[in-house]
């Protein structure tokens, strides 16, 4: 899949943002006043910024509101609804904390649930696609959720919890990669089934329909060298998990914590880039690629 920056930014930032909102909503002793304000600004900047970024890849962003209508079947619609609901609920919750110093705990719980729901529905947009076997697994929501929770925990200053969640997310990420690398082959879909010619012999693409790349090739076929991908995986994993864990485990200082968070964000972004770049869509088969 084409690793579109808008989608990478969106999933990376909104994952963190909603993760942070989740912890803020659950907090039994939440900050108030300016401190709360700071936390919520960060959370909203990340989640709303992410959502805004996601509209950049829309052909008709001015109609984006229509995306809320199909919650019965569409995960994208559900995500939109969850996101809006989470942001609205948490806005009331935040306003109460910031301006009135009042902790509306049940509202926080609902907001937290909706925030988590947003991350889950986002992940389901990808998970549901049988066309992309690498994504089509329960491990995908696990990955998105664990990362979101870990990132949110870090941002909200929950060091110990953050540490263990990071380790968990790291494990999920490794499992996700291991499964993902075999997923296409195991899906049973190949050029033979794609063309129905497989039982006659080995099928090979002789010529594409057009001699220049088309929309489908641009969107669905992204060729990334195996070696290059491995390198990026290591970089991504070190940034996303290893460094933050080390930094946090070493000793606690705000500077180091901030550095850990930045490392983590950068790492998530790298892994998200790989999430798309490495994903093979069945359409690629028709073009003799994966």
């Amino acid at each position: 899949m084409h690793p579109a920056p808008s989608v990478i930014i969106f999933t990376t930032l909104s994952g963190l943002g909603f993760g942070l909102l989740f912890w803020l909503g659950l907090d039994s002793t939440p900050p108030t006043g300016m401190v709360a304000f700071a936390f919520f600004v960060i959370a909203y900047a990340l989640s709303v910024g992410g959502l805004l970024a996601s509209t950049f890849h829309l052909g008709r962003p001015e109609r984006a509101w229509r995306a809320l209508s199909q919650w019965r079947t569409s995960w994208l619609s559900r995500e939109g609804i969850c996101a809006v609901a989470a942001l609205l609920v948490m806005a009331v919750y935040a306003a109460a904390l910031v301006f009135a110093g009042v902790h509306l705990a049940p509202l926080g719980w609902i907001g937290a649930l909706l925030s988590l729901g947003t991350v889950f529905t986002t992940s389901m947009i990808y998970t549901q696609l049988a066309t992309i076997p690498r994504w089509n697994s329960p491990l995908t929501p696990a990955l998105f959720l664990s990362l979101s929770l870990a990132g949110g925990a870090l941002l909200s200053g929950r060091v110990t919890l953050g540490l263990s969640l990071l380790l968990l997310a790291g494990l999920v990420q490794l499992a996700w990669w291991m499964r993902g690398d075999r997923a296409f082959a195991q899906s049973g879909t190949d050029l033979g089934t794609a063309t129905g010619l497989g039982d006659r012999g080995t099928v090979r693409s002789l010529a594409p329909p057009h001699t220049s790349p088309n929309y489908l090739m641009r969107e669905f076929i992204f060729v990334i060298g195996r070696k290059h991908a491995q390198k990026l995986r290591i970089i991504g994993f070190v940034l996303m998990i290893v460094l933050p864990v080390l930094l946090l485990a070493l000793s606690f200082s705000h500077w180091l914590a901030a550095l850990a968070v930045l490392c983590h964000i950068a790492g998530v972004a790298v892994c998200r880039w790989l999430f798309f770049a490495e994903a093979e869509h069945t359409v690629g088969l028709y073009y003799g690629m994966r």
Partner: peptide
């Protein structure tokens, strides 16, 4: 008239049967 050009339907189609028109921004 209702399409927002999110492209998700093209992602969901296994066959490459949908194309987002680059000028019009709709599927």
């Amino acid at each position: 008239d209702h399409c927002i050009g999110c492209g998700l339907c093209a992602w969901a189609c296994p066959y490459g049967a949908r194309e987002l028109d680059q000028a019009e921004g709709v599927m």
